[in-house]
């Protein structure tokens, strides 16, 4: 793996509620390169703009100004329809609250991101089961997600993020609600994925995360600006 640039941000700003009284400048003029195959952690206090930056990087939202290039291709002005397609192929998301769909089994939740692509059902099921067993959750496949423990829910969320086999995995505050053992388990999974060649982008203000050995880059944010890079 060479340390080439996978995602490149140029002067990216994001303003929430633009033009309204409750306008917020969440991210201001950020220049940032994300390296391929590396683990990058966005660090900063709550409200510093980590999540907002993550949504821009992950094509969930368009920047208010500035450019985002993915693999050299400018995607900042792209219509939502195509941005969605790119996002689906490129990014897997593990949300802060996991956001699994209640009432559905773990297996169904994992298969969900692939529905619009409509791969053969048998193949998809196989793939979801493989991911579950990789994460040692095969016994929970048919369990409704609301019955899962915190760690199990997180691993289900990781499996869901991986089902489309995206090259980039994005996780927002992955260890916010986890105890030490589970945090260590998460870091273990992250390391495995890195070893498989995935690019990981995490946000965290948890030293256990950004001081972990496998982390390659740490970008510290403050008030929507980059304060420090490592």
């Amino acid at each position: 793996m060479t340390d080439t640039v996978l995602i490149s941000l140029k002067k990216v700003s994001k303003i929430h509620n633009e033009g309204r009284p409750n306008e917020v400048q969440a991210v201001v003029g950020i220049d940032l390169d994300i390296a391929r195959g590396k683990v990058t952690v966005l660090r900063g206090a709550s409200g510093s703009g980590k999540t907002t930056l993550l949504t821009v990087i992950g094509c969930l939202a368009r920047p208010s100004s500035g450019r985002v290039a993915l693999d050299g291709r400018d995607i900042s002005g792209m219509p939502e329809r195509f941005l969605t397609r790119i996002r689906q192929e490129t990014f897997g998301f593990v949300f802060q609250g996991f956001n699994l769909l209640r009432g559905m089994s773990a297996l169904d939740n994992i298969m969900l991101p692939a529905y619009p692509q409509a791969p053969p059902h048998r193949w998809l099921r196989r793939r979801a089961l493989d991911l579950l067993s990789m994460l040692r959750l095969e016994h929970r496949a048919d369990t409704p997600v609301e019955m899962l423990s915190g760690g199990e829910a997180q691993r289900t969320a990781i499996a869901r993020a991986l089902v489309n086999d995206p090259p980039i995995l994005i996780a927002d505050e992955p260890t916010a609600n986890l105890d030490t053992a589970l945090t260590r388990e998460f870091l273990g999974i992250a390391e495995t994925l890195k070893a498989q060649g995935k690019t990981l982008i995490l946000t965290s203000h948890d030293p256990r995360v950004f001081e972990a050995g496998m982390v390659d880059h740490v970008v510290t944010l403050r008030d929507g600006r980059v304060e420090e890079r490592r």
Binding site: E18, P63, S64, G77, P79
Partner: peptide, 8 residues
């Protein structure tokens, strides 16, 4: 319509 604009 202005595809170049990233505006809301």
């Amino acid at each position: 319509w202005n595809p170049a604009s990233g505006s809301a």
